[in-house]
């Protein structure tokens, strides 16, 4: 187990360095010097800000030195100062926005797993039945559904027509005057649609993979053995089958984390949720370089953390990896 963890940690370190090199390269191989791009396209940049940026990245030094200087600061969570008029530290800005994005992503991940795995198993077991056909059609629709369109439809129906749910933000007017329970209910009501939207595509995807994986497992010899031993159908499927069928799913979930994080830009923008995705959108629109780089790096760290959880999950399901 210890060597396994060491190996994983080393792999993560390599991946982290790789990601930061790619992000860094985007700055340096973008046409012109980063400061030129910024100053030409962003009238807000003052000469002081430009000088600060040059100092921060050490732009007079060779690229490799610049990268090493930058990564040293990044490890200390120093991403520099935002270009926006408030001049606050990038990390402070990210820190206020990160929790809500994390909550929404974790909640949707849990919902995806809780709904998709049972659907996948049951449609694999009842293959070619009416139920299987209906879920297959559902999966194709779910796969193809643009998240932002689903968001618009929900806003139109539940928000504009039925006035059941709030369409934007996290808090209603008068939030501060509410009781604790009132506040909790208010935030939950604001979060229902965003969480639904961000888990919708994932439910379709994961249930499809779960179905495929279960179908694969059902054909295996050990399943026939279990059946010929006279075990109950439930035991065969949920004890013998599920553990094996879950293995590829754990990998898929790990791989889908970057997509979830990337998707937060869309639903946070549509629902005006003050999270990291919205912050990223704003930083991109105003060409706030340090903030863009900071969020790219944090996004990478989140993905790595997600992958680590996926690996630990894999080890929990498959005893072979622990050796």
């Amino acid at each position: 187990m210890l060597t396994y963890l060491t190996k994983k940690t080393l792999e993560m370190l390599v991946t982290f360095i790789g990601i930061t090199i790619i992000s860094f390269a985007i700055i340096h191989f973008a046409p012109g010097k980063p400061t030129d791009v910024l100053t030409d396209l962003n009238p807000k940049i003052t000469p002081e800000a430009r000088a600060k940026l040059e100092r921060y990245y050490g732009l007079d030094k060779p690229v490799t030195t610049q990268y090493i200087l930058w990564i040293k600061r990044v490890v200390m969570l120093d991403f520099g100062e935002s270009f926006s008029s408030d001049h606050r530290a990038v990390w402070t800005k990210i820190k206020e926005r990160l929790p809500i994005t994390l909550y929404i992503n974790i909640a949707s991940l849990l919902i995806i797993l809780a709904i998709a795995i049972p659907i996948g198993i049951s449609s694999a077991v009842a293959r070619h039945s009416l139920y299987d056909k209906i879920t297959t059609v559902g999966v194709f629709v779910g796969f193809a559904m643009p998240g932002f369109w689903l968001a618009l439809l929900l806003m139109m129906f539940f928000g504009v027509h039925l006035h059941m749910l709030p369409v934007a933000g996290l808090k209603s007017a008068g939030f501060d005057a509410m009781s604790f329970q009132g506040k909790a209910v208010d935030i939950l009501r604001h979060l229902i649609m965003p969480i639904f939207v961000s888990s919708f595509g994932g439910i379709a995807g994961i249930s499809r993979y779960m179905r495929g994986s279960m179908l694969e497992v059902i054909r295996q010899d050990y399943m026939t053995t279990a059946r010929s031993k006279g075990l109950s159908q439930g035991r065969i499927i949920y004890i013998h089958g599920l553990r094996n069928a879950l293995l590829p799913i754990v990998t898929i979930v790990g791989l889908s984390i970057p997509g979830l994080i990337g998707g937060s830009v869309i639903f946070e923008q549509v629902f005006s949720i003050p999270g990291m995705g919205q912050l990223f959108y704003m930083s991109v629109m105003s060409r706030d370089y340090p903030l863009v780089m900071g969020i790219l790096t944090i996004g990478a760290v989140l993905t790595l953390a997600g992958n680590l959880f996926a690996d630990l999950g894999y080890a929990a399901v498959d005893p072979r990896t622990r050796r």
Binding site: V14, I26, A30, L255, F280, L296
Partner: peptide
């Protein structure tokens, strides 16, 4: 394949937004 894994770990939509912003 290490490089492929790294590319797969980047939230692609973030990367696309960033690049489009610079170009």
């Amino acid at each position: 394949m290490r490089f492929v894994d790294i590319m797969l770990s980047i939230p692609t939509f973030f990367l696309i937004l960033a690049v489009i912003a610079f170009l």
